[in-house]
Amino acid sequence: MESKSRVLVVGGGAIGGLLAWRLSHSTTHTVSLLCRSTYNQIKSHGIPITSLQYGNATYHPESLHRTIDDAIAHATSFDYILVTLKALPNIYDSSEVISKAVGPGTMILLFQNGIGVEEPFLKRFGKGNPVVSCVSFVSVCKENREEEGGRLGGWRLRHGGFTMVVAGFANEQHTNEDLQKLHNLFAEFQRSGGIDCSIKSDIQVYRWQKQILNGSTNPVSVLSRLSCQEMVRHKRYRRMLEDVMAEIFAVAESVIKGKLPGTNGIVDPPAAISYIEGIEAPVYTSMLEDSLNKRHMETEVILKNPIDLAEKHGVAVPHMRALYESLLKIEQAYEK
Rank of each mutant, 00 (worst) to 15 (best):
L34M: 11
G161N: 15
I108R: 01
L327F: 10
V317N: 02
S201G: 14
L288A: 06
V97W: 01
E253H: 06
L213H: 12
P120T: 00
Q173R: 07
G12H: 04
C197V: 03
Q53Y: 04
G13S: 07
M287C: 06
S94F: 01
H45Y: 03
G314N: 04
G103P: 04
W155R: 06
R207P: 03
G258F: 05
E96L: 10
T27M: 06
M320D: 05
V165F: 04
Q229D: 03
E62L: 04
A281Q: 15
S94Y: 02
L292N: 08
G265C: 04
K142S: 13
I273H: 10
S224Y: 03
G150Q: 07
E96H: 03
G46F: 07
L34Y: 02
R321N: 08
N176G: 03
S192T: 00
S221E: 03
Y54C: 00
R151K: 11
F125P: 11
L88P: 13
V267L: 11
L33R: 05
V102M: 12
G258T: 01
H296I: 06
V10S: 05
R239I: 02
T76I: 09
I203N: 02
M164H: 12
L109Q: 11
K100V: 05
R151A: 08
G116S: 08
V267A: 03
G168Y: 03
A310D: 08
V135A: 07
I47P: 03
A250T: 15
G150Y: 05
G16I: 07
Q190D: 11
L303N: 03
G105I: 13
Y206D: 11
H25E: 06
T285L: 04
S216I: 10
D69A: 15
A333D: 14
Q180L: 02
Q332N: 14
I248C: 01
F162V: 08
G265Y: 12
R151P: 00
S63E: 03
L122C: 12
N171H: 12
R238C: 14
E242A: 09
G278C: 13
A310Y: 06
S274F: 04
P130M: 09
S274M: 06
S63I: 08
S95M: 12
V301F: 05
V31F: 00
H60W: 12
N144C: 07
